[in-house]
Amino acid sequence: MGGLLYNTYVSMKGKRFVWFFTVMTVLFIAIRMIFPGWRNLTSYISYDLEGNQLNEWDRIIAFFPLFMIVIALEFTNLWVSQCVEKDEKNKIREYISAMPLRKNTYVASKFAYIGIVTYIFFSLGMVWTITAGAFSIDPGAIREADMTQGIMMSIFAVSLFSSGLELFLFLILGKKKAMMIKVGFFLALGIAVIGFLLFGNLLVFEKINWEAIMNWINTHQFEVVLIQILSSASGLLLYFGFYKLTCALYKPEGRIE
């Protein structure tokens, strides 16, 4: 298992990415510590219409965690397909099937690898938001950090779910078919959205009572916390479900034709 994880790490050029994210994190921490929000950077000070002072530097910095989280999620998404694609290309699966390994070890190694990557990115996301928020004085920037931290767990739960589904498709159907399904799905989704924007009744958005939703959130603390826990936990459970399903359907000698 350890060997398979290392193999995936090497084939994904993991070392390069470890360095990239480490350097970015250290640089970000250093920049934030050297230039905190309370440092008098006059060129970054502006005022809103009501005359309140805004710290643009803090606001720019507050975008960094969100930006990096998006990059991290993109990489995870890319690696899911790449780790299967590279194995297909290098005939790793055939090689492994000849080794005295349990049937599910290969599947477990892929799911474990993506799980570890997601965990590391979630942890880095926490470090980035904490760093952004710690040196900010602008209330807007702090709100931004709060929001990023608040939604991060749900974002990564969704990412874990989509990674699980993709791994399932790639391992069971092979790269070509899985890619066709993936591209087909997103194409259909894109067409549906564009179609709705062009011909749909956009007035439905106006009918949404945001105030009532916000009131419900404020007055139903228990339900909100429960939803937060359950939605994030369901991401983990579904990921595990996809793993089990892949194990059940996986053919070690190759993909199902």
């Binding site: 965990y119 979630f122 767990m153 603390q221 916390v225 994030s232 936990a233």
Partner: peptide, 23 residues
């Protein structure tokens, strides 16, 4: 001014955030 039922969720929330954010 907190819904008291939240405190019964606290162990579950702590377990979840603890495990996920154990870095």
């Amino acid at each position: 001014d907190v819904d008291f039922r939240i405190f019964f969720l606290q162990p579950l929330a702590a377990i979840f955030t603890g495990v996920v954010g154990s870095f």
